[in-house]
Nucleic acid binder design. Structure first.
Lengths: 128, 128
DNA sequence: CAGTATCCCTCTAGATACTG
DNA sequence: CAGTATCTAGAGGGATACTG
């Protein structure tokens, strides 16, 4: 990923280049705070728009819709609309979304495991 | 992580709350495109400022310094200044940085593994 | 309730120039 | 070469109001 173009210069792999830039784009989509927090919130279950909004503390209405659309577009979440009134819209991770979620969990785990180290590092840095 | 405050309301765990908000903050620092790409670029090795800049395609001088400072402050990268002229500054992941790198690798792996699915999903979404 | 559209302002991030 | 500072345009994102 974000490959260093080991193959750069070979004229025949425009395909690889394309895949590369696509990977970049997806990485940029996904590697952002709100997207990851939404994925984490969905977890294994199914949540309504308003429920996600509660769980992902601090997310605005706008950011939530934007990111949900993006995740849906990339096939990470499934959006099911129940044509009732009032409407009920449920979001669920797709298989690929759940696969990504595992890595998000790993980041969360890393964060907690290193809280202490990080606090120390900050203190050292800030006093210097 | 980004816990849903299962313990919310109990007055005695201001500590947990603090740790929680710290975790949030760290998550926000780290869950951003440039930070992750820099960590990925550093890998197991040691790179100079200008070398990182080459590897992380598209990063501006400013963004690179900003993110390197942030990563240094959080104890993810080690910054070594050689007092020569011209100056030589080398960056290396710390142990905690390398631990996080593993998860970044996982995200990259995920990206490549799901490129096809994602392209399909996008096509479907965009034509609808 | 969920979603879209509009306004508006902040703050990000690029470009440029300058120092050790 | 690496880093800091300044200026500035423009995207990001909040608040609000309106629709199905």
């Amino acid at each position: 990923m974000v490959t260093k173009h080991e193959l750069e210069g070979l004229p025949e792999d425009a395909d690889l280049r394309r895949a590369d830039s696509l990977a970049r784009e997806i990485f940029s989509d996904v590697a952002n705070k709100w997207a990851l927090l939404i994925i984490e919130a969905l977890g294994e279950g199914t949540l309504r728009f308003s429920e996600i909004r509660k769980q992902v503390e601090g997310v605005s209405h706008k950011m939530l819709t934007q990111n949900l659309r993006m995740l849906e577009r990339n096939g990470l979440v499934d959006r099911e609309v129940h044509p009732t009134v009032p409407p009920r819209v449920e979001y669920t991770l797709t298989e690929s979304g759940r696969a990504l979620r595992v890595t998000v969990d790993a980041i969360c785990g890393w964060t907690h495991a290193h809280l202490g180290h990080i606090e120390d590092a900050r203190r050292r840095f800030d006093t210097a």
